[in-house]
Simulated assay, not measured.
Amino acid sequence: MEMPDTMRRRLEDFSRNVLFDQSRTQAITKENDTFLPYVSDKRVLSGLHLQMSLYFNMWFFPLWWISETIMLHLKYPALPDYYKFILVTVLILMTLIEAIRLFLGYAGNLQEKVPELAGFWLLSILLQFPLILFLLFNEAILIQPLERAVHIVLALFILSQALSGFVALRDMVRHTESQFHLRQFH
């Protein structure tokens, strides 16, 4: 399953303009002041920490979902109507976002695709992390001990993935740019 071209271009532009600092371009490798011919660099750029975190998150998320659904069912009668609507909406949104986010994380990291990894990172930072913080710190939603425990674990997963995803994304963008510069001189 491929991303639409317009979305891919927007994510490429974002990663090129925001995540990559133009002033810190890497110099092309020189040997005795002559350019080396283009050599295909087959380094693995996938982040091991990111991949491990994604793997464990993939197995943990169903447990989180079941726990959250059971706790919501138990406390539903005691909640005000507006919190009932908000919590059901947040649960549905987080489920959809998490499925998309994990897919983009896997595709971007394992296949070393910058747009997918940038999409994963943006979903983590802009949507999933604020939602889990809302569920973790809003005492008006009658947080139960089991909920607090699974929210803390999911928040730690999302935070660690955001940090390691940024590092992996930065490395992939730098490598892609250096390969682009090497191809220009070949």
Rank of each mutant, 00 (worst) to 15 (best):
S40L: 15
A155L: 07
Y83P: 07
L127Y: 02
E98H: 02
Q51H: 15
K30I: 13
I97M: 07
L136K: 04
F103R: 10
P130E: 00
S53C: 13
R8S: 04
W121D: 12
L154Y: 08
P115R: 01
L91I: 10
D5N: 10
V173K: 14
L19A: 13
R174G: 10
Y55C: 15
F60Y: 09
L102W: 03
S15M: 07
P145S: 00
L45N: 07
D171M: 11
R8A: 01
E98C: 03
H186G: 14
A149F: 08
N138F: 10
V88W: 04
N32A: 12
P115L: 00
T25I: 14
I100K: 13
R183W: 10
R43T: 13
F134E: 03
T6W: 09
N138P: 05
L169S: 04
R16T: 13
Y82G: 00
R170I: 11
R8C: 05
S53P: 05
L169A: 02
T95F: 06
I158R: 04
M7C: 03
A149R: 06
P115A: 00
R43W: 07
W59G: 13
S178G: 12
S160N: 10
L11I: 02
G105V: 02
F20H: 15
F35V: 13
A27K: 14
I132K: 06
S164G: 05
A107D: 11
L159H: 01
A168N: 01
A140E: 14
P4Q: 04
V90Y: 08
L169E: 02
E98N: 07
L50D: 01
H151R: 00
T95H: 00
M3P: 06
W121H: 15
L117W: 05
K113A: 01
L146D: 00
Y83A: 03
E68F: 06
E177M: 10
G119Y: 00
D5P: 01
L54F: 05
D171C: 08
I143G: 01
V90A: 08
L50K: 08
T95Q: 05
E177H: 10
V88Q: 09
P37G: 06
Q26L: 14
R148H: 09
N17H: 08
N138K: 11
E139S: 15
D13R: 10
V114W: 01
L74V: 09
D5G: 07
D5V: 09
A107P: 05
Y82F: 02
L19K: 10
K30G: 08
Q144G: 08
Q161M: 09
W65S: 06
R8E: 00
H49T: 15
I125R: 12
A99I: 15
A162N: 04
R24F: 13
T176G: 14
P130V: 03
A99V: 15
M52W: 15
F180D: 11
G47Y: 08
V167K: 12
E112N: 04
P130L: 07
A140S: 14
W59E: 09
W121S: 14
G165H: 02
Y55V: 15
L93K: 12
P77F: 01
S23F: 09
